[in-house]
């Protein structure tokens, strides 16, 4: 049982890292729907680097770097060029989906390195994730930089008039968000499931994106949501632990996705939006032109 819980919590960290990055992005007003692409690229880069160098640390570094770079690419398109953020995000995703399939295919198979040591069977990434949630919360709600980030996402014109460099703040956030997405991908390929396969994520990134909307842009609620989905995901992989012999295992695989849709609907109802929806950054997805 503990093994299942530990495994679920490790799965949650993958949702958590990526969604936390996206949360920071969105708090500054930038929407990145290509989150899954950043994770794919980060994970693949981490896997290839770790396998060639034999070092987990270098692998994670590669994942972080590539995620950050792709995040900056999204920033260039959506912040500097004020392009459509959905076009750029979708572009990043399909780009990553296509290129990682090609670049990673010679490496298909297990990583072949030792497992990353665990603490009582629990992956060290879970406590790291909790720490990152606390840090993100502190950053957003208890520092001047956080106030600047939130203001850039709510009303960039007001922030600029207060002397906040909105463009730089947003670039900082997309870089941070990209790095976290890269970390998420790397955690998947180096620790959670160290076997490379094409399109290994199969929708984790999009679930993470949905989690950000569920979280009402609050890191602590995000932690709860990610944990819940981690458990659900793990159960959908091994339903026989709870309900042996009921339904095909394939049907269970649909559950996390199927549950996401009604939750998305609930948070989109006028009833929910007028009560809780004020948390949505007002300038989310809207390019900002100075002056």
């Amino acid at each position: 049982m503990w093994e299942l819980v530990a495994r679920s919590l490790e799965a949650s960290t993958i949702f958590l890292f990526a969604a936390l990055g996206e949360l920071i992005d969105q708090r500054s007003g930038v929407l990145n729907v290509g989150l899954e692409g950043l994770m794919l690229f980060g994970g693949t880069a981490a896997f290839i680097t770790a396998q060639t160098t034999g070092s987990h640390a270098l692998g994670f570094l590669a994942g972080l770097t590539l995620g950050g770079l792709l995040g900056l690419g999204h920033g260039f398109f959506s912040i500097t060029l004020r392009g459509d953020q959905v076009v750029s995000g979708m572009g990043l995703w399909i780009l990553s989906f296509g290129l990682t399939t090609y670049l990673g295919s010679p490496y298909t198979g297990p990583l072949g390195l030792g497992r990353i040591p665990s603490l009582w069977g629990l992956s060290p990434f879970f406590p790291l994730g909790v720490a990152l949630v606390a840090i993100t919360w502190l950053l957003l709600f208890r520092t001047g930089l956080g106030l600047a980030i939130r203001s850039a996402g709510e009303n960039p014109a007001a922030a600029e008039a207060s002397g906040i460099p909105v463009t730089s703040i947003r670039f900082l956030c997309v870089a941070l968000g990209g790095m976290l997405a890269g970390l998420s991908g790397a955690t998947y390929t180096l620790s959670y499931n160290p076997v490379w396969n094409y399109n290994f994520l199969m929708g984790w990134g999009f679930v993470s994106l949905a989690l950000v909307f569920f979280s009402m842009w609050n890191p602590w609620i995000l932690l709860a949501g990610a944990s819940l989905f981690g458990i659900m995901w793990q159960l959908s992989l091994s339903p026989e632990l709870i309900l042996p012999g009921v339904l095909s295992r394939y049907v269970w695989r649909t559950v996390p996705f199927a549950i996401t849709i009604p939750i998305l609907c609930i948070i989109s109802t006028p009833w929910f939006r007028t009560r809780w929806g004020l948390a949505k950054p007002e300038a989310l997805g809207r390019p900002y032109a100075k002056g």
Binding site: T143, G144, L147, S151, E154, N155, A158, S162, E282
Partner: peptide, 25 residues
């Protein structure tokens, strides 16, 4: 046109961008 963040408190708006808010608020 008002350059205030309407979802934030008055105090947060006044503090926004003030040199004193570097680091922790």
């Amino acid at each position: 046109t008002r350059r205030l963040v309407s979802a934030h408190t008055v105090l947060e708006n006044i503090a926004l961008g003030h040199p004193r808010t570097r680091g922790f608020l």
